[in-house]
Amino acid sequence: MKKKLALYTGCLMSTEQYGYELSVRESLPLLDVQLVDIAGFSCCGEPLKSVNQLLTLYLSARNLAIAEKHNLDVFAPCAMCHLALSECKQVLQNNPDMKTRINEMLAAEELTFEGNGEIVHTVDLLHDHIGIEEIAKHVKKPLKGLKFATHYGCHLIRPSEIGRPDDSEHPVKIEAIISVLGAETAKYPEKLDCCGGILQINLDESALTKSGQKLKAVQNQGFDGLVDVCPWCHKMFDARQVKAGETVAAKLNVPVFYLTQLLGLAFGVKKEKLGLDFNISPVDKLEIG
């Protein structure tokens, strides 16, 4: 059965993290997901939560309202966006006064937030909606002999009070997906550690240190690569890996992939189409695709 979803790209993926967007657009249609582009979206507001959270709620509600206008559930491949939209939906649904207040403001753009739509992320879309068995059917080139570390991203699994795509302390869905693609995963103590990404805005050095520490741990434990599902985390681990290494005095050499890139590779999609050219980390050394 074809699943039709509004693709909510968010800022970071659509303005620079093209590897994620390309691989999402290439691999998901193979699983019978129809991604619909809608004009008029804006930032989800999460990066501005520190400045004014009302703004965050408004921006998220606005985006959800646009999708509702088209009667579509929302697919947000960015963990930050997914949290902002989910939190907005929960807060407004439980707080009618706030909902009215936001809707009064949305009226200026002829929008109304009802809160009927569902919000999915790459991980629950693949694992829960499409399902492991279905993914298995499409694997043409299993990723044999590779062992990956997984990085879920804080916003994807916490806070669990706002329904998140996987368990906050023991997330396993990415592992299950990677396993069906033919590769291995393993537990590592730093699995739940933060990438530091949000601090790029004001304390870049610390952001880099956080990413550097995590990458160093992954490298030292003999993983072939790191898999992530959030453009903020990915930017830190991939594009900024060399700099991150410098802050922790380590020469880092960790291939970093978006989960959807691995998915496409296992499905036999050419790597150019999956935007692997944009991965700055040494993904080529694994000789897949």
Binding site: C11, L12, S14, T15, E16, F41, S42, C43, G45, P47, L48, S50, V51, L59, Q200, I201, N202, L203, D204
Partner: peptide, 21 residues
Amino acid sequence: PGKYTSVLQSVLSIGLIQDAQ
């Protein structure tokens, strides 16, 4: 602190934290 002001300004003017790069 930091780039919060420019992020805010960008969202105000084009709706996104930055334009397509």
